[in-house]
């Protein structure tokens, strides 16, 4: 804060003025977030104790749904499975995206930003379209199979890739790779190039420079990239619906089912709360050094 505003703060009247400004600036966004974010989460927590979604039973409060969730091993297994799918997807994304980001930052020279834009353009297309693209590509009457058939390379449609856990992961990786490359690239760009020269002058070999200087310094960006895939993927329900089939079902589908089909809102609330807590704990556990701006890709 500059000297002028400090001087302002010294006078009680000016202090009041500053407080007024803060109040005016913060009240609208604060109220909005309170009304449409904090309170809804609170209502969800309240719903998790209700006996039923509608009717008189709604006014009865119970731990029944928590007990049901704790006893429901299939729900827990599904949560575990979704965490694994999210983990695999984000790891594959990081492994695929790191060399891209490295190439752009260290090898691509002045055209790096243009090349980065080229990578990101496909992800500005409709999310549903990109999933649909893979549904079409992977299906038994899909493009891969019909292409191979019409070329005469295969006699009949190959075993379908669609409707499996693998199809979900391939599709999600496709969707997220560019979003992982961005924060890794940003992280690599922040590395002071003089450090690399210093390491070289001190006799480090290129692989040593990579392993001991670049890699550790890139970790915050890598983690941001990892989390920016991991967080939405844990709760994913659209991709499994379209390409997952029975094998590729995820925890998000279970949550969605409680609201859209089963209309068991209290149980759905329990499931959402559990997922939210798991994701928050993992995010704050893993993401200590991660800048929130990296995570947002800003």
């Amino acid at each position: 804060m500059s000297t002028r505003s400090e001087a302002l703060l010294a006078r009680p009247a000016a202090q009041l003025e500053v407080r007024q400004r803060i109040t005016v600036l913060l009240t609208p966004p604060g109220l909005w977030l309170l009304l449409f974010f904090v309170i809804p989460l609170g209502v969800m927590a309240l719903f998790s104790f209700r006996a039923a979604s509608f009717g008189a039973q709604r006014q009865v409060f119970t731990l029944e749904h928590y007990q049901r969730f704790l006893a429901d091993t299939s729900a827990q297994r599904l949560l575990w499975r979704s965490l694994l799918i999210a983990l695999e997807t984000s790891l594959i994304c990081v492994v695929l995206a790191f060399p891209l980001a490295y190439f752009l930052s260290f090898r691509a020279g002045p055209s790096r930003l243009m090349l980065l834009t080229i990578l990101v353009i496909p992800s500005w297309t409709s999310f549903l379209l990109r999933i649909l693209a893979w549904k079409v590509l992977l299906g038994s009457s899909g493009i891969f199979n019909s292409l191979l058939l019409s070329l005469g390379w295969i006699e009949e449609a190959a075993p379908i890739l669609l409707f499996s856990r693998g199809a979900v992961i391939i599709t999600l990786v496709y969707i997220w790779v560019p979003f992982v490359a961005l924060p890794i690239f940003a992280g690599l760009e922040r590395i002071n190039r003089h450090l690399l020269e210093a390491a070289e002058d001190l006799g480090s070999r290129p692989w040593q420079i990579f392993l001991e200087v670049i890699l550790p310094l890139s970790l915050p960006g890598v983690l941001a990239g990892f989390l920016s895939v991991f967080i939405p993927t844990v709760g994913e329900y659209v991709t499994p619906l379209l390409v997952g089939g029975v094998d590729g079902i995820m925890y998000g589908n279970l949550v969605q089912d409680q609201f859209a089909r089963a209309l068991n809102w209290p149980l759905g609330s329990v499931m959402s709360l559990v997922m939210m807590l798991v994701v928050l704990v993992l995010t704050f556990g893993l993401g200590r050094g991660v800048k929130v701006t990296d995570l947002a890709g800003v």
């Binding site: 966004p29 449409f36 709760g235 329900y237 998000g252 609201f259 995570l295």
Partner: peptide
């Protein structure tokens, strides 16, 4: 509070808003 929407799966937000409107 203002940045937490970044770190929760959006299905949770959708569901929570559905409940509060109901």
């Amino acid at each position: 509070v203002s940045t937490i929407p970044l770190v929760i799966p959006s299905v949770v937000l959708g569901v929570a808003l559905l409940l509060v409107f109901a």
